[in-house]
């Protein structure tokens, strides 16, 4: 007989070694997240997946599931905190959804809608962020980077290239490229790399593809990210 936890009262099976997030994803229970992708090692940095497990706040992507664990996920208290986290992400970068080709396929935007974020609330930082268009096939727009490190993990763990990394501390943290010039075009990055496919926002974009998917056929046009993920599809990978 398998072990179980409960998430908002619903009994969910898990296997030893699985995190709360693993169990939730397998059972198609949506816990909001941005830095997590089941294909890569958990990171626990965005904190959106914070749940209350047996009364303690934990990151569900890194917290191992334990027999009988009682998890609170969709509570007003947690979603209010998550909404504030997303609001901070929006003002920390330069996220201009109306003109972003990722709009409709963007996990950040989808999570914000899902959590009921209808306005920024906080003052925008309007940071000066560098745009790197030097690669022949990929556009790197740091204005939209949320420092989830999915590209870092994909490049390191799947592509074996270590093209990306984070540099700086605190508000000065930024995505850097491992090349002599620091430019993507001078790295060995390739459009076929896994790291080119995993960005949850529009920070890493394949060139010459913009807006080819019409409105109405984008991932989150008709369903919330909660509905999409509850049906077992991983957001962030666009339909061709």
């Amino acid at each position: 007989m398998s072990k179980t936890i409960t998430i908002d009262g619903k009994t969910i099976p898990f296997m030893d070694g699985q995190t709360i997030m693993d169990a939730a994803l397998a059972a198609r229970v949506y816990i909001p997240h941005l830095c997590h992708n089941p294909e890569f090692k958990p990171h626990g940095s965005c904190k959106l997946c914070t749940v209350k497990a047996n009364g303690r706040l934990v990151s569900s992507c890194t917290m191992p599931a334990c027999e009988g664990m009682e998890v609170e996920n969709g509570t007003k208290e947690l979603n209010d905190e998550r909404r504030d986290l997303v609001r901070m992400l929006f003002v920390e970068g330069n996220h201009l959804c109306p003109t972003c080709e990722k709009s409709g396929n963007c996990q950040l935007q989808a999570v914000a809608y899902c959590l009921g974020m209808m306005s920024p609330r906080y003052n925008h930082f309007y940071p000066q962020r560098e745009v790197d268009a030097s690669h022949p096939d990929v556009f790197l727009d740091r204005n939209r980077c949320i420092l989830c490190e999915l590209c870092v993990r994909a490049s390191r763990d799947v592509d074996g290239k270590n093209v990306f990394g984070l540099s700086g501390r605190g508000i000065g943290s930024r995505l850097v490229v491992n090349s002599c010039s620091g430019r993507l075009g001078d790295s060995d990055f390739a459009v076929s790399d896994k790291a080119a496919q995993v960005c949850p926002t529009g920070a890493i974009l394949i060139k010459r593809q913009g807006f080819k998917v019409p409105i109405g056929q984008r991932i989150y046009d008709h369903k919330t990210i909660c509905q999409v993920e509850s049906q077992g599809k991983t957001g962030g990978e666009e339909d061709e």
Partner: peptide
């Protein structure tokens, strides 16, 4: 200036 050309038709209509 600095934006990819693919973005422009959607951006400038604003």
């Amino acid at each position: 200036q600095g934006r990819p050309y693919t973005e422009v038709p959607v951006l400038v209509q604003r």
